[in-house]
């Protein structure tokens, strides 16, 4: 597999959220607005990149039997770093993402990539894989966030749409809207995927 393929496979073909349906909790919970979605996506991308790189470096040192706890410690370290950085530099984002920043630790995408890719491949490949998967996750969050913000509050990135009056369809910002929007987006992605084959 070429370097470019490793980077781009996470974007669409093996998109972690829309195709593999991993990491569903943050993709439903923090996509009430585009800003939150992008913030969460980039935070996860950073963790994925760093943890993949470090785990790939340590792969020959970690005994096979305790690899999962070892991976979790590496991931938790980077999550704590991200958590403190966001609290320090973007307190508004920390406020709106809340508990979901520390919960990146249990995001199945991160542990999944560590186990499936970083523990078997070279350092640079693992870095690219983490970057690609993270950006794929960000794209998926961006799509869901855009739909929910447009329908739910009639705005995009916090700016009201022209010609729109009123508040939008509230249910799309609330919990049910998240499930329904994600359901339809996955259905659409599946449709295009089938059409391609």
């Amino acid at each position: 597999m070429s370097k470019l393929q490793i980077l781009t496979k996470g974007l669409i073909k093996e998109n972690p959220t829309l195709i593999l349906v991993l990491g569903t909790c943050p993709s439903l919970a923090v996509t009430t607005s585009v800003q939150n979605a992008i913030g969460m996506g980039l935070a996860t991308t950073f963790v994925l990149m760093m943890s993949n790189t470090i785990i790939s470096m340590l792969k020959s040192l970690i005994p096979d039997k305790v690899r999962i706890p070892a991976f979790i410690v590496v991931i938790a370290t980077f999550v704590s770093i991200v958590d403190l950085l966001i609290q320090g530099f973007v307190p508004a984002l920390a406020e709106s993402l809340g508990i979901f920043i520390p919960l990146i630790v249990v995001n199945c995408i991160v542990l999944g990539r560590a186990e499936a890719f970083a523990s078997k491949n070279s350092v640079f490949d693992s870095f690219l894989d983490g970057l690609g998967m993270g950006l794929g996750f960000t794209i998926a969050l961006f799509l869901i966030g855009t739909c929910r913000e447009l329908l739910g509050s009639g705005s995009f990135w916090g700016y009201k749409l022209p010609f729109v009056t009123g508040d939008g369809i509230l249910v799309f910002v609330l919990a049910p809207g998240a499930f329904i929007v994600m359901g339809f987006i996955i259905a659409i992605v599946k449709h295009f995927q089938k059409a391609k084959h």
């Binding site: 919990a175 049910p176 809207g177 998240a178 499930f179 329904i180 994600m182 359901g183 339809f184 259905a187």
Partner: peptide, 12 residues
């Protein structure tokens, strides 16, 4: 998955 998510939405 899609129908499961939409069902979950209605349950929510």
């Amino acid at each position: 998955v899609p129908i499961a998510l939409i069902t979950a939405g209605i349950l929510a």
